[in-house]
Design a protein around this nucleic acid. Structure first.
Length: 909
RNA sequence: GCGCGAUUAGCUCAGUGGUAGAGCAAUGCCUUGACAUGGCAGAGGUCACAAGUUCAAAUCUUGUAUUGCGCACCA
């Protein structure tokens, strides 16, 4: 079938085309075309960036998708925009680098492979050991890791695939380690035992950004502890976590709380394991909340930990890393999962008569972003980073060196930058960049347990921080943790480039990403750029919309509400998907996904294809537009609008208004070119005037060739296909690598001529609308025998009548300056003059009367409205003259129409 | 609690002070020679609400309501 299309469209084969025309598919079939062109581009290295080029450089680095990932609709949006920017930059004659790659995605990937190992080999990573397990991960990555890359290719992404990078490439890893070493030596990285967010499923620490707060209905347990020195007297305490009761070391009250002042310093009995714990006073306690008494569990709550530090309290850890209870003294609970233990502990309290009541209570609970389980605050040994280059990074965004679009994200950025917490960068995983810290073997155990560790500890000589272990002949053991994945991706804009590439392409021009990773990634990249590459990493950040489902919910695997982009491409083509999505998406607010919009993209591709087919039917061979003298008004009009389109597109692109770009392209082609122009010129093709036909074909070729180039960034495949097959490009040349000609197409005509042509064309289309309207009102739409009589308003009218008849679907338009219409003949005042539609008495008079009455009432209202406005002296004095003119013209028009309707009505009565 | 958005036709959304728009859906007509993934025509809106500024407000100001998102707190 593809061959047939190709054969059909190929220039110079008119006879063959005519012979096969009836068999041609009327609908565009994107699948084969898209595949074929992508292969052609790749084979001809069209995407390759040359760092030695003398052309101006333009670069984008892809936000690296997870190597485990599969394409979702957000990726499509994001990468379509990048592709549009890259392709447009090429058309502007720039040397373009769009640098692709993937991210190793520590937790996600490790979890996936652990599951595979468990399912297929029935073993665990610990049993396999670090080295063996990592081998499995690499195997998995090599086998399945590139799926998303293939999917991006299907979408048409013009990345320089020869430069594809991975965050765990050897040289990339070396840079990550070196950054760690440098920051350590600078004193910005340190190790310490801190309260961190712990994921009991992935068994690792997480950064604050990886914790998602969700509102949950919890139970608030009210219980009572007996006072040691006053048996039978109790202190009431409320808690949501009775299962950590064994870790209580105190009960706190607010020092200003009159109710409890007398208890401070005394002791209560902890029920299990039985112990006497002190009542302390601390400002943190909210008098209003619960009973006003707070149990203190320093090991399992961030606030309690801080209170514990202030009062120098003992830390009793009663949880294992996986969230099960670690408390042999209470065998009923020991080993239970934390949530089971919660119910069990409550039951035990009840048995002991210490549980007063249980209330439902809504609070926010932290969940781990990846594993989606409740986070456990946990004290553990971790590595932390104090952020570098904070001031430069903050200033850059605020002084305009880096532009955020939409601008409002600046405040989100500033807010976070102003409240930076040290970044927990260590993860208790194996898949990732291992911390480049080495301990002398004999002292390894002791050093690993050391409460805090920073650059001062290097002096001992037993610790070494460096990419490779020291070569002093002694044995060294490496720190077992790996770094947060984002600790590698924050280097992405420059760590992916070698020196000469950096020279040409760094800093990058645009970053296109979602606002949800503004902290995770964007802010950190800016800091890393200033600290390690001496300047900003990108000049513009475009934050895309977040795509939601039709109910406004975020797309998610669990809900199953995420459409598969591959299905969409099967149904609508990659071009259709891109176009449809761009038409609605990038307005800065969230968008609801609607498949109908995507079908609009497919429909548009089909329209384009058929309009080109129409051109081919008129004969093969490209005709140059070399004379402007004899152009008709509608020729001039479409050429002028094409030039205007060029200007409008520039403006829309400059402001990153991709929906505008798409809207302009759509409007020009569908409304202006197809609905108006193509219909208007059909008269030319029915006539015998060969030179007129040739002129029209030249205009068509001029418009289509330029238009296809304009459309190319959005719909790369079909435009490449049509440009080639229509013969708009020299053989062997690609549209995607051709610089777009920006010189106006409409030259050789005076501004007055252009203006006049456009005005006549506007009249033509408007009048055609009026005539169709008249026909439709009298239910004559299907009749081909409708005849109009025009009393021409000027000389040019005669020359437009044939075209007008074509557009209006009329059999004939007569010019008759002295026409005397029969009473009641429908008429319209048009910019061509008065137009009459003789009815020959075929109309139902009663229906006509009531129609006219309704119409008269409607227009009377309009006249009153406009008259009121124009009789307002303030309006006349202070409104802009052109506004007043428009209003006056409008009133005059209504009044004319009203008068006419009344006379028609009078004739009928 | 603080901050940032949103609210326009049945639906999805454009619209930066001057005649309220598009696509889809729904209605009527049209298989005419590029396209039914199409054409033509008509219908459909108190621009969330209230007050203000202005000759003029969907648009600017203030407030209210509804809703989404982020941050903080949460025993």
């Amino acid at each position: 079938m593809t061959r047939l299309i190709a054969g059909w469209l190929y220039k110079g084969k008119t006879s063959r085309y005519e012979a096969t025309m009836s068999e041609l598919p009327k609908a565009y079939e994107p699948q084969a075309v898209e595949k074929q062109w992508y292969e052609a581009w790749t084979a001809n290295k069209c995407f390759q960036a040359d760092e030695n080029s003398s052309k101006e450089g333009y670069s984008i680095v892809i936000p690296p998708p997870n190597v485990t990932g599969i394409l979702h609709i957000g990726h499509v949006l994001n990468n379509s925009i990048q592709d549009i920017l890259a392709r447009r930059a090429r058309q502007q004659g720039k040397e373009v680098l769009w640098l692709p790659g993937t991210d190793h995605a520590g937790i996600a990937t490790q979890t996936k492979v652990e599951k595979k190992v468990r399912d297929e080999e029935g073993t665990t990573r610990r049993e396999l050991g670090r080295e063996e397990f990592l081998k499995r991960v690499w195997d998995w990555k090599d086998e399945h890791g590139g799926i998303i890359i293939q999917q991006l290719k299907r979408l048409g992404c013009s990345c320089d695939w020869d430069r594809e990078r991975f965050t765990m490439d050897d040289d990339y890893s070396a840079q990550v380690s070196k950054v760690f070493v440098d920051l350590f030596n600078e004193g910005l990285i340190y190790r310490g035992k801190r309260m961190v967010n712990w994921c009991p499923k992935s068994l690792t620490a997480l950064s604050d950004e990886e914790v998602i707060m969700k509102p949950k209905v919890s139970k608030l347990y009210f219980m009572k502890y007996e006072l040691v020195d006053a048996p039978g007297e109790f202190l009431e305490i409320s808690t949501t976590r009775p299962e950590t009761l064994m870790g209580d070391i105190a009960v706190a009250v607010n020092p200003d709380d009159e109710r409890f002042k007398k208890f401070v310093g005394r002791k209560v009995r902890r029920p299990f394991p039985a112990a006497e714990i002190e009542i302390i006073a601390d400002d943190h306690v909210d008098v209003e909340f619960g009973t006003g008494c707070l149990k203190i569990t320093p090991a399992h709550d961030k606030a309690d930990f801080e209170i514990g530090e202030r009062h120098n309290l003992e830390i009793i850890d009663v949880l294992h890393a996986d969230g099960t209870i670690n408390c042999p003294e209470v065998p009923e609970l020991d080993g239970l999962d934390r949530f089971q233990a919660r119910r069990k502990a409550a039951a035990m309290l009840e048995e002991m008569g210490l549980l007063i009541k249980v209330e439902e209570y809504e609070n926010n609970v932290g969940f781990s972003e990846r594993a989606d389980v409740v986070i456990e605050p946990r004290i553990s040994m971790q590595w932390f980073l104090k952020y570098p280059a904070v001031k430069e990074a903050t200033d850059a965004v605020n002084n305009g060196d880096i532009t955020f679009r939409p601008k409002r994200w600046e405040s989100t950025y500033n807010n976070w930058m102003g409240n930076l917490q040290d970044w927990c960068i260590s993860r208790q995983l194996w898949w990732g960049h291992q911390i480049p810290v080495w301990y002398r073997k004999e002292k390894s155990f002791e050093l690993r347990e050391k409460e805090s560790l920073d650059m001062n500890d290097l002096k001992s000589g037993d610790i070494y921080v460096g990419v490779e272990p020291p070569t002093d002949g002694s044995e060294w053991e490496r720190d077992e943790d790996v770094m947060d994945t984002w600790f590698s991706s924050w280097l992405w804009p420059f760590a992916t480039m070698d020196e000469s590439t950096k020279k040409k392409f760094y800093p990058t021009a645009d970053l296109v990403t979602g606002p949800d990773i503004i902290f995770f990634w964007v802010a950190r990249m800016i800091m890393a750029g200033y600290r390690f590459a001496d300047q900003l990493p990108f000049k513009n950040v475009f934050f895309t919309s977040i795509v939601r489902d039709d109910k406004g919910r975020k797309m998610s695997k669990q809900l199953g509400n995420s459409p598969d982009p591959l299905d969409l491409m099967d149904k609508f083509g990659a071009d259709g998907l891109r176009f449809g999505l761009m038409r609605i998406a990038p307005t800065g607010t969230d968008i609801k996904f609607d498949e109908d919009t995507i079908s609009e993209g497919r429909n548009f591709a089909n329209k384009l294809y058929n309009a080109c087919r129409f051109r081919q039917i008129q004969g093969a061979g490209v005709i140059a537009l070399d004379s402007f003298d004899k152009l008709d008004s509608h020729h001039i009009d479409i050429l002028a609008k094409l030039d205007k389109l060029d200007v409008n597109l520039d403006a829309a692109y400059d402001n990153y208004r991709f929906n505008d770009v798409t809207g302009q392209l759509y409007e020009f082609f569908w409304t202006e070119y197809c609905d108006k122009f193509l219909e208007a010129i059909k008269f030319d093709f029915r006539s015998d005037d060969e030179s007129a036909k040739a002129r029209t074909l030249a205009v068509i070729d001029t418009v289509l060739a330029r238009y296809l180039a304009h459309l190319h960034p959005l719909m790369p495949h079909i435009t490449e296909e049509l440009s080639a097959k229509m013969g708009y490009l020299p053989a062997g040349q690609f549209l995607m690598t051709s610089t777009t000609d920006k010189t106006p197409v409409l030259t050789g005509l005076s501004a007055e001529k252009v203006e006049e042509g456009q005005q006549i064309a506007a009249s033509l289309y408007e009048t055609a609308g009026r005539l169709r309207n008249l026909k439709s009102e009298y239910n004559l739409a299907s009749s081909k025998d409708v005849k109009f009589v025009v009393k021409p308003i000027a000389d040019w009218v005669g020359g437009e009548c044939d075209t007008l008849a074509t557009l209006a679907g009329a059999k004939e338009i007569q010019l008759q300056a002295d026409y005397d219409p029969p009473q009641g003949t429908p008429a319209a005042v048009t910019t061509f003059g008065e137009v009459y539609m003789p009815l020959d008495g075929l109309i139902d008079m009663d229906a006509e009367k009531s129609r006219l009455d309704k119409e008269i009432a409607k227009i009377t209202k309009e006249v009153e409205k406009a008259g009121k406005k124009l009789s307002n002296p303030n309006f006349i004095e202070r409104a802009k003259p052109e506004v007043v003119d428009v209003e006056r013209a409008r009133l005059a028009e209504w009044e004319g129409k009203l008068e006419q309707l009344r006379s028609m009505r009078g004739a009928l009565a």
